[in-house]
Amino acid sequence: MTLTMAWVRKVGGVEEMVIASDSRLRSLGAWDAAPKIIPLPRGDVAIAFAGETDYAYPMMIQVANSISFYHGALTRRQPLAKLKGHLIRVINLMLDQLKDVPVDLKEAPAAFFLLAGYDWTAGEFRIWKLHFDKGIGRFTFAPTRGWGGEGNGDKVLSIIGDEVGEAREVVLEYLRRQGQIRAGGLDMEPMMALAHMVDSERYPSIGGHIQVAKVYKSMQCVPFAVRRNGARSLLGRPLLDYEESQTIPTLDLDY
Protein backbone atom coordinates (compact mmCIF):
# COMPACT_ATOMS: atom_id res chain seq x y z
CA MET A 1 0.00 0.00 0.00
CA THR A 2 1.29 3.47 0.73
CA LEU A 3 0.90 6.67 2.66
CA THR A 4 -0.14 9.75 0.69
CA MET A 5 -1.02 13.21 2.01
CA ALA A 6 -2.23 16.52 0.64
CA TRP A 7 -2.53 19.68 2.70
CA VAL A 8 -2.78 23.44 2.44
CA ARG A 9 0.44 24.97 3.74
CA LYS A 10 0.05 28.42 5.27
CA VAL A 11 3.12 30.38 6.28
CA GLY A 12 2.55 34.06 7.00
CA GLY A 13 0.37 35.34 4.18
CA VAL A 14 1.49 32.67 1.71
CA GLU A 15 -0.59 29.60 0.84
CA GLU A 16 0.28 26.61 -1.31
CA MET A 17 -0.92 23.06 -1.81
CA VAL A 18 1.55 20.28 -0.95
CA ILE A 19 1.10 16.68 -2.09
CA ALA A 20 3.55 14.11 -0.70
CA SER A 21 3.88 10.35 -0.64
CA ASP A 22 6.27 7.49 -0.07
CA SER A 23 7.42 5.38 -3.03
CA ARG A 24 7.03 1.76 -1.91
CA LEU A 25 5.16 -1.03 -3.70
CA ARG A 26 4.92 -4.41 -1.99
CA SER A 27 3.75 -6.82 -4.73
CA LEU A 28 7.30 -7.88 -5.69
CA GLY A 29 8.83 -7.27 -2.29
CA ALA A 30 9.73 -3.75 -1.20
CA TRP A 31 10.16 -1.84 -4.47
CA ASP A 32 11.06 1.72 -3.53
CA ALA A 33 10.79 3.59 -6.83
CA ALA A 34 7.07 3.85 -7.59
CA PRO A 35 5.54 7.13 -8.83
CA LYS A 36 2.42 7.85 -6.80
CA ILE A 37 1.82 11.50 -7.70
CA ILE A 38 0.95 12.62 -11.22
CA PRO A 39 0.77 16.36 -12.02
CA LEU A 40 -2.14 16.61 -14.44
CA PRO A 41 -1.66 18.29 -17.85
CA ARG A 42 -3.80 21.38 -17.18
CA GLY A 43 -1.29 22.61 -14.59
CA ASP A 44 -3.46 23.53 -11.60
CA VAL A 45 -3.98 20.10 -10.06
CA ALA A 46 -2.35 16.75 -9.28
CA ILE A 47 -3.70 13.30 -8.56
CA ALA A 48 -2.13 10.81 -6.17
CA PHE A 49 -3.08 7.28 -5.17
CA ALA A 50 -2.95 4.65 -2.48
CA GLY A 51 -4.02 1.04 -2.71
CA GLU A 52 -4.11 -1.62 -5.39
CA THR A 53 -2.00 -0.72 -8.39
CA ASP A 54 -4.02 -3.04 -10.66
CA TYR A 55 -6.76 -0.42 -10.46
CA ALA A 56 -4.87 2.74 -9.59
CA TYR A 57 -2.24 2.92 -12.33
CA PRO A 58 -4.53 2.36 -15.35
CA MET A 59 -7.07 4.78 -13.92
CA MET A 60 -4.51 7.50 -13.21
CA ILE A 61 -3.01 7.25 -16.69
CA GLN A 62 -6.41 7.43 -18.36
CA VAL A 63 -7.39 10.36 -16.15
CA ALA A 64 -4.32 12.23 -17.40
CA ASN A 65 -5.10 11.21 -20.99
CA SER A 66 -8.69 12.39 -20.67
CA ILE A 67 -7.47 15.88 -19.76
CA SER A 68 -4.86 16.00 -22.53
CA PHE A 69 -7.44 15.24 -25.20
CA TYR A 70 -10.42 17.20 -23.85
CA HIS A 71 -9.99 20.88 -24.68
CA GLY A 72 -12.31 22.18 -21.96
CA ALA A 73 -10.35 20.36 -19.27
CA LEU A 74 -6.90 21.07 -20.69
CA THR A 75 -7.43 24.83 -21.02
CA ARG A 76 -9.00 25.07 -17.52
CA ARG A 77 -12.25 26.34 -18.99
CA GLN A 78 -13.72 23.48 -17.00
CA PRO A 79 -13.30 24.58 -13.33
CA LEU A 80 -11.69 22.23 -10.85
CA ALA A 81 -14.98 21.20 -9.22
CA LYS A 82 -16.41 20.20 -12.61
CA LEU A 83 -13.15 18.51 -13.58
CA LYS A 84 -13.56 16.31 -10.51
CA GLY A 85 -16.94 15.15 -11.85
CA HIS A 86 -15.43 14.48 -15.27
CA LEU A 87 -12.67 12.35 -13.75
CA ILE A 88 -15.13 10.33 -11.66
CA ARG A 89 -17.06 9.58 -14.85
CA VAL A 90 -13.84 8.51 -16.61
CA ILE A 91 -12.91 6.21 -13.72
CA ASN A 92 -16.37 4.64 -13.52
CA LEU A 93 -16.47 4.15 -17.28
CA MET A 94 -13.17 2.30 -17.01
CA LEU A 95 -14.60 0.19 -14.21
CA ASP A 96 -17.44 -0.82 -16.53
CA GLN A 97 -14.88 -2.23 -18.99
CA LEU A 98 -13.56 -4.77 -16.48
CA LYS A 99 -14.64 -8.27 -17.54
CA ASP A 100 -13.86 -11.93 -16.91
CA VAL A 101 -12.88 -11.42 -13.29
CA PRO A 102 -12.86 -14.74 -11.38
CA VAL A 103 -15.61 -14.84 -8.76
CA ASP A 104 -13.12 -15.43 -5.94
CA LEU A 105 -11.21 -12.28 -6.97
CA LYS A 106 -14.19 -10.00 -7.53
CA GLU A 107 -13.99 -7.55 -4.65
CA ALA A 108 -14.51 -3.83 -4.20
CA PRO A 109 -11.54 -1.96 -5.70
CA ALA A 110 -9.14 -1.03 -2.89
CA ALA A 111 -7.88 2.06 -4.71
CA PHE A 112 -8.04 5.57 -3.31
CA PHE A 113 -7.12 8.87 -4.94
CA LEU A 114 -6.48 12.42 -3.82
CA LEU A 115 -7.31 15.17 -6.30
CA ALA A 116 -5.64 18.35 -5.05
CA GLY A 117 -5.34 21.73 -6.71
CA TYR A 118 -6.36 25.37 -6.96
CA ASP A 119 -9.93 26.24 -7.90
CA TRP A 120 -9.80 29.54 -9.77
CA THR A 121 -13.57 30.00 -9.62
CA ALA A 122 -13.65 29.79 -5.82
CA GLY A 123 -10.22 31.34 -5.29
CA GLU A 124 -9.15 28.56 -2.93
CA PHE A 125 -7.24 25.31 -2.70
CA ARG A 126 -9.38 22.17 -2.80
CA ILE A 127 -8.80 18.49 -2.00
CA TRP A 128 -11.14 15.64 -2.82
CA LYS A 129 -10.79 12.01 -1.83
CA LEU A 130 -11.97 9.69 -4.62
CA HIS A 131 -12.98 6.25 -3.38
CA PHE A 132 -15.15 3.25 -4.21
CA ASP A 133 -18.54 3.24 -2.48
CA LYS A 134 -19.83 -0.32 -2.01
CA GLY A 135 -23.35 0.98 -1.48
CA ILE A 136 -23.65 2.34 -5.02
CA GLY A 137 -21.01 0.13 -6.63
CA ARG A 138 -19.22 3.15 -8.11
CA PHE A 139 -16.37 5.50 -7.40
CA THR A 140 -17.44 8.74 -5.78
CA PHE A 141 -15.81 11.66 -3.98
CA ALA A 142 -15.68 13.37 -0.60
CA PRO A 143 -14.36 16.92 -0.08
CA THR A 144 -11.70 17.63 2.51
CA ARG A 145 -12.56 20.32 5.02
CA GLY A 146 -10.80 21.92 7.97
CA TRP A 147 -10.23 19.84 11.10
CA GLY A 148 -12.82 21.85 13.01
CA GLY A 149 -12.61 23.14 16.56
CA GLU A 150 -11.01 26.34 17.80
CA GLY A 151 -8.64 27.74 15.22
CA ASN A 152 -8.46 24.46 13.33
CA GLY A 153 -10.63 25.38 10.37
CA ASP A 154 -7.39 26.56 8.75
CA LYS A 155 -5.85 23.09 9.01
CA VAL A 156 -6.78 21.29 5.78
CA LEU A 157 -5.22 17.84 5.46
CA SER A 158 -6.27 14.64 3.71
CA ILE A 159 -4.50 11.28 4.14
CA ILE A 160 -5.01 7.99 2.29
CA GLY A 161 -3.26 4.64 2.49
CA ASP A 162 -1.98 2.55 5.36
CA GLU A 163 -1.96 3.69 8.96
CA VAL A 164 -4.08 6.79 8.33
CA GLY A 165 -5.06 7.11 12.00
CA GLU A 166 -1.46 6.71 13.12
CA ALA A 167 -0.29 9.31 10.58
CA ARG A 168 -2.81 11.82 11.88
CA GLU A 169 -1.62 11.20 15.45
CA VAL A 170 1.99 11.78 14.42
CA VAL A 171 0.99 15.07 12.74
CA LEU A 172 -0.79 16.09 15.94
CA GLU A 173 2.30 15.28 17.98
CA TYR A 174 4.45 17.56 15.82
CA LEU A 175 1.84 20.30 16.18
CA ARG A 176 1.79 19.89 19.96
CA ARG A 177 5.55 20.24 20.11
CA GLN A 178 5.30 23.57 18.29
CA GLY A 179 2.31 24.82 20.25
CA GLN A 180 0.18 25.01 17.11
CA ILE A 181 -2.58 22.59 18.07
CA ARG A 182 -5.26 25.27 18.48
CA ALA A 183 -4.68 27.98 15.91
CA GLY A 184 -3.34 28.61 12.44
CA GLY A 185 -2.71 26.52 9.35
CA LEU A 186 -0.29 23.71 8.68
CA ASP A 187 3.32 24.19 7.71
CA MET A 188 5.50 21.10 7.08
CA GLU A 189 4.22 19.00 9.99
CA PRO A 190 2.58 16.42 7.65
CA MET A 191 5.89 16.07 5.77
CA MET A 192 7.71 15.47 9.06
CA ALA A 193 5.14 12.82 9.99
CA LEU A 194 5.52 11.13 6.59
CA ALA A 195 9.33 11.10 6.95
CA HIS A 196 9.03 9.62 10.42
CA MET A 197 6.80 6.80 9.19
CA VAL A 198 8.95 6.12 6.12
CA ASP A 199 11.97 5.67 8.37
CA SER A 200 10.23 3.54 10.99
CA GLU A 201 10.41 -0.25 10.81
CA ARG A 202 6.91 -0.36 12.34
CA TYR A 203 5.34 0.36 8.94
CA PRO A 204 6.75 -2.10 6.38
CA SER A 205 4.26 -1.08 3.68
CA ILE A 206 5.45 2.55 3.86
CA GLY A 207 8.97 3.35 2.72
CA GLY A 208 11.44 4.44 0.10
CA HIS A 209 11.95 7.91 -1.30
CA ILE A 210 9.60 10.75 -0.44
CA GLN A 211 8.00 12.37 -3.47
CA VAL A 212 6.53 15.86 -3.51
CA ALA A 213 4.59 18.18 -5.79
CA LYS A 214 3.19 21.62 -5.04
CA VAL A 215 0.33 23.60 -6.56
CA TYR A 216 0.44 27.40 -6.49
CA LYS A 217 -2.21 30.07 -6.87
CA SER A 218 -0.59 30.90 -10.20
CA MET A 219 -2.14 27.58 -11.27
CA GLN A 220 1.18 25.81 -11.70
CA CYS A 221 1.74 22.29 -10.44
CA VAL A 222 5.45 21.75 -9.82
CA PRO A 223 7.15 18.43 -8.99
CA PHE A 224 10.13 18.76 -6.67
CA ALA A 225 13.35 16.82 -6.57
CA VAL A 226 13.85 15.72 -2.96
CA ARG A 227 17.20 15.65 -1.19
CA ARG A 228 17.17 13.33 1.80
CA ASN A 229 19.82 11.27 3.56
CA GLY A 230 22.36 12.56 1.08
CA ALA A 231 20.47 11.26 -1.98
CA ARG A 232 18.26 12.99 -4.57
CA SER A 233 15.07 11.59 -6.05
CA LEU A 234 12.22 12.79 -8.24
CA LEU A 235 8.67 11.43 -7.98
CA GLY A 236 9.95 8.35 -6.17
CA ARG A 237 12.93 7.50 -8.39
CA PRO A 238 16.55 8.07 -7.34
CA LEU A 239 18.26 10.46 -9.72
CA LEU A 240 21.43 9.51 -11.56
CA ASP A 241 24.54 11.54 -10.81
CA TYR A 242 24.35 13.43 -14.11
CA GLU A 243 20.63 14.23 -13.85
CA GLU A 244 20.80 17.90 -13.00
CA SER A 245 18.07 20.28 -14.04
CA GLN A 246 17.69 24.03 -13.72
CA THR A 247 13.93 23.71 -14.21
CA ILE A 248 13.14 21.30 -11.35
CA PRO A 249 13.42 22.84 -7.86
CA THR A 250 14.88 20.81 -5.00
CA LEU A 251 13.31 20.36 -1.57
CA ASP A 252 15.91 19.61 1.09
CA LEU A 253 14.46 17.29 3.74
CA ASP A 254 17.75 16.68 5.54
CA TYR A 255 16.62 18.44 8.70
Rank of each mutant, 00 (worst) to 15 (best):
S218G: 09
L93G: 14
I248H: 12
D44M: 05
R24V: 01
A122F: 03
T2H: 12
A116M: 07
G135Y: 02
L95G: 10
S158R: 15
F113L: 08
Y118A: 02
F125G: 03
T144I: 09
Y55Q: 00
L40Y: 01
L194C: 04
H86D: 15
A110D: 13
E243Y: 14
T144W: 02
P204K: 02
P102T: 07
L28V: 09
E16L: 09
A64N: 03
G236T: 08
I88Q: 00
R138Y: 05
A20H: 10
Y70R: 13
S68I: 04
E244T: 13
Y57D: 13
K129V: 10
R227M: 04
F139M: 03
P223A: 02
K214V: 08
E189W: 02
L95N: 12
L114P: 11
V11I: 15
I88G: 02
S205M: 10
M60G: 02
S21C: 07
R126P: 04
P102E: 06
E201N: 07
V212S: 01
P35S: 05
D133H: 07
D44T: 04
E52A: 07
V18Q: 09
L3H: 01
S23L: 08
G43D: 03
F113I: 08
P79N: 07
F224I: 04
P204Q: 03
L175P: 00
M192H: 11
A108I: 01
D241P: 06
M219V: 03
A33F: 13
T53W: 05
K99I: 14
W31E: 10
N229D: 12
A111N: 00
